[in-house]
Design a protein around this nucleic acid. Structure first.
Lengths: 264, 264
DNA sequence: CGTCAGGTTGAGGATGATCAACGAATGTGG
DNA sequence: CCACATTCGTTGATCATCCTCAACCTGACG
């Protein structure tokens, strides 16, 4: 916990730099750059791919289950949710999409999308046509490797959620989700050391965790009464990090964005 | 459902061809070749990467949670399981690994492995060092694209399992798993039109579905009594495919291995 | 001022876990 | 060949976690 405040300051500084230098500094480029140091040309090519951005208001569907598509999209700013709707109307929220993420991964890698993505806030996105993606693989293999690496690591989030839903109690599930959100948002400069803004309703939390909204409400009360964390309207604050980590069985390694080993 | 038997025949023929031409025809190469047609040189490079194989007996751990590593492995033959063990000993099985799959995906994309993989049968594996993988990205961008595509589609299996565990009843979960196993095994020539050999215990099924083994047993009995499917010692047979698909809410698209759109 | 989304709380009930016991099949050592 | 252990499957009884139904509260917004 001691150096997390410092970490955050560094991230925020990067964000501010981005604001100064304009769209060239882009969360997606930043992320790939964390996997392996990219040269100027590589960064320039990526930036030009992402140059044209589009703004979408909150609550709009960006990707729709069953619909075909011919491009991937990158989230530049704001938050989105990936989810699936079952035939009987039940919803499973798969993941939170944060700036720098590929929106259509993995939903858009099929003939028609296998999941929905909708904007949780107003967002800014860039589109990468498949043909441009393929050209990128030919021109900049190192970028391709970084891309491969990120998308493979995405899988880590899913397997962790899977074990959370499959094998943890409701109380543990909520604790684990809160910690995951904290760490993922912190990595993109959107959270403090032990708190973050959260535009998720209790119904959404339930749909992420396989729980009813009423039960989420009770587990939130539990966390508050036990002094572990408080979940208010749009803000989550962690009061006892150690206890929460212990309760959740949380291990942050699956969210790591460390260098790719052995890549020059 | 009508042409699935025919599809299988084609796959089986490919497998037989493999037996004739020897190790050069490899399930991993076959799979990438289904994503985009690879030229001879591309296939040759891949095959040489996979030439050295290693046999591992059943019940051995190939990848161990928390342990570092410097290579990916490819499963050539046999079956394996990816799983996580929690601090209190509970186990969540994440996925079945079938021939042609990258074993260490996504577990080995981190500084230390975030999940275990163990052999379910005697298996044959090839090792791909990271440096060889990187070289492949430089030499054969089209292979890299196919690799990116497969690994991204892996995510589809996880999000489907996630919605299954999060939002379906125990009965539906079992039905869905049986169908997924059938279709995945059929894609590698290891299942008939409506049946397959299954070396999974009821405890393992429970650990895949977030259920207790006793409850799995009862749901299996249900399926049998309703005439939908029978799960015997090491063999699963589906008796009423339509009803099972309806019960599970199963949509096979997330297992598709169709061509990558727009890739020459 | 009415409506609506979101949050809060309680009561009752169902799904699925846990505990417990037993049977069948397989393997092992004597 | 038998005694024994072990693994896997089967079934019943009880119990708890979590769902469903229902009601009410609050604040925001037209």
């Amino acid at each position: 916990m001691n150096n997390s405040a410092r970490d955050r300051v560094i991230v925020m500084t990067q964000q501010q730099t981005a604001a100064v230098t304009g769209a060239a500094r882009h969360p997606f480029v930043e992320k790939l750059n964390r996997y392996t140091v990219l040269c100027n040309e590589e960064q320039a090519t990526l930036s030009s791919l992402l140059a044209r951005t589009r703004t979408i208001h909150r609550g709009r569907d960006i990707v729709v289950q069953g619909r075909p598509h011919q491009a991937l999209q990158v989230l530049n700013d704001g938050l989105a949710l990936r989810y699936k709707i079952l035939a009987d109307g039940k919803r499973q929220i798969l993941n939170l999409v944060v700036p720098g993420d590929l929106i259509g991964l993995p939903a858009c890698m099929f003939e028609s999308a296998i999941a929905n993505v909708s904007s949780l806030t107003d967002i800014s996105v860039s589109t990468i046509e498949y043909k441009d993606l393929f050209a990128l693989f030919h021109r900049h293999p190192r970028v391709a490797i970084a891309l491969f690496w990120t998308s493979a690591r995405e899988g880590g989030v899913y397997i962790e959620r899977l074990t959370t839903i499959g094998r943890r109690t409701a109380y543990e599930r909520l604790a684990h989700l809160i910690l995951e959100l904290l760490f993922r948002l912190r990595a993109v400069g959107l959270a403090g050391p032990a708190s973050f803004e959260m535009p998720l309703t209790q119904e959404m939390l339930g749909d992420m965790l396989g729980l009813s909204l009423q039960h989420v409400n009770r587990m939130i009360r539990n966390l508050r009464e036990e002094g572990l964390a408080s979940v208010e309207v749009h803000k989550v604050t962690i009061h006892d990090m150690d206890a929460l980590v212990r309760l959740a069985g949380f291990e942050e390694i699956y969210l790591s964005q460390a260098r790719i080993p052995g890549l020059a």
